[in-house]
Design a binder for these strands. Structure first.
Lengths: 247, 247
DNA sequence: TATTGAACGCTCAAACTCAATCATATAAAA
DNA sequence: TTTTATATGATTGAGTTTGAGCGTTCAATA
């Protein structure tokens, strides 16, 4: 296995479990302890994880993972970035069957949804709670709960997804480029997004301007597979490849 | 488990309960008293909690210092009604695959779960959140989200349930009688409980004493189909029909 | 007053983790 | 083909962490 792949796998494991011991990572990757230690040192130096005695942990909120996350998210919550979420929410009508994925940008959509008869489906626990607060018809995909993002992923999630068809899907992405398309760090999440898109008539990706030009580990689908909703498009060229709504 | 994880867990426990004894924290983390003491000393030195005789408390709160010592605290948190939940939580071992249903009594179980390698499955969003907070392996059944109880119900939930087999299932019930068996108001929830029980090797119903003699709309299963865990059994006769744990 | 029990900190041995070193293997360069 | 560079796995000795045992303190109780 390539060193690069190992790094991805380590980060993925951390994303899902929040913390992992060196032994755990040896089992997952099949590499020796020495190698894992070397990898952890490298990744820690790159600031991608925090190395602790016995293993590594996801960095970010010291504790209260989500709560702090929510606080900071709300803090970062500028009106400009919110416009995309508001616009996306406005696209939903009474007859829609909507998929919402797990991601901060999509989560914001929930706060702008008006009452409707639409059916909502999501793989995000947080999103499901917001939808319920607004008395919207909500279904949740089953599956393995991932620490950190509180997203449902894995084989069970994909199987559940195959039992639905959507009129519209709203997805988040961490990276958007013309060559690599839409990308996200966790392959498991990418698989869910990709499959959801495949079962939707209209696919929208919500991406704020900072996401353009970024590339992360897992490809979701190519650039032309979704309509982009953004607050500011940094490069006109994207319009040659797909529909872009700059709001 | 990593030392940092333990620290997180201790702080989370405190955030939730305001105070905890050393013994409590041992159970939650699976570590020894010596280790917990060391952790508490370290965290206290970092100013993240206040160490008191017998355990630790959140700092900053309106009650500080001597006003409430551990004795009264322990009284607060070891309430009668919690005993059943605590007992049930103690039944879970590392090799178990556990189903937890949506209900206030079962939800309380989550607060008494110790660290373990067991796999947890639930149809309750709230329960899933609690499980994740404790770093437990958690899966969620898909389905329609029901307002009020935040339980997942419906055909999708039943289908998801058929893909699992459990070693132990812990269920709530609103009514328990010898003639009508276990009952609950919502037929949809009854269907989930019933199916979950059918797929479990051992079935436990958590019911406080007020539930005995009550009958509600939907039958879950007959009285002999589950072991009853309760704080007080009002009528000896139940013992003739099924296993009862009065704790 | 003496006793008991709970909680504490200290110490020690065992288990575990770490970084450094070395040998091997694989791939690129000469 | 030989050489060089890089990556990996094993080994080792040093350093950490952990759980158990022991003596002390303190307060409740006989």
């Amino acid at each position: 296995m390539l060193a690069e792949q190992r790094a991805e796998q380590i980060l993925r494991e951390l994303a899902q479990r929040r913390a992992a011991t060196v032994t755990d990572l040896c089992q997952v990757t099949g590499a020796s302890e020495a190698t894992i230690r070397r990898d952890l040192n490298a990744l820690a130096k790159q600031g991608k994880l925090s190395k602790v005695h016995g293993g590594a942990m996801l960095l970010g909120g010291e504790f209260h993972g989500e709560e702090l996350d929510m606080e900071t998210k709300r803090g970062l919550f500028t009106q400009e970035k919110d416009r995309a979420a508001r616009y996306a929410a406005g696209l939903i009508g009474d007859d829609d069957v909507v998929f919402l994925d797990a991601g901060t940008t999509v989560l914001r959509m929930a706060e702008h949804l008006r009452a409707s008869k639409a059916l909502f489906l999501t793989n995000s626990i947080e999103c499901a709670c917001r939808l319920m607060e607004r008395n919207l018809r909500t279904h949740v995909l089953g599956g393995m709960l991932k620490a950190g993002t509180m997203a449902l992923i894995g084989a069970e999630t994909l199987a559940a997804l195959r039992r639905y068809n959507f009129t519209k899907a709203f997805l988040g992405a961490n990276g958007v480029t013309i060559a690599q398309g839409f990308t996200t760090p966790d392959p498991e999440e990418a698989a869910v997004k990709s499959l959801a898109a495949g079962r939707a008539q209209e696919v929208y990706v919500l991406a704020d301007s900072s996401k353009f030009g970024q590339v992360t580990a897992a490809v979701i689908f190519p650039i032309e597979a979704a309509c982009i909703i953004t607050d500011r498009l940094p490069d006109r060229q994207y319009r040659d490849y797909t529909d872009v709504r700059e709001v």
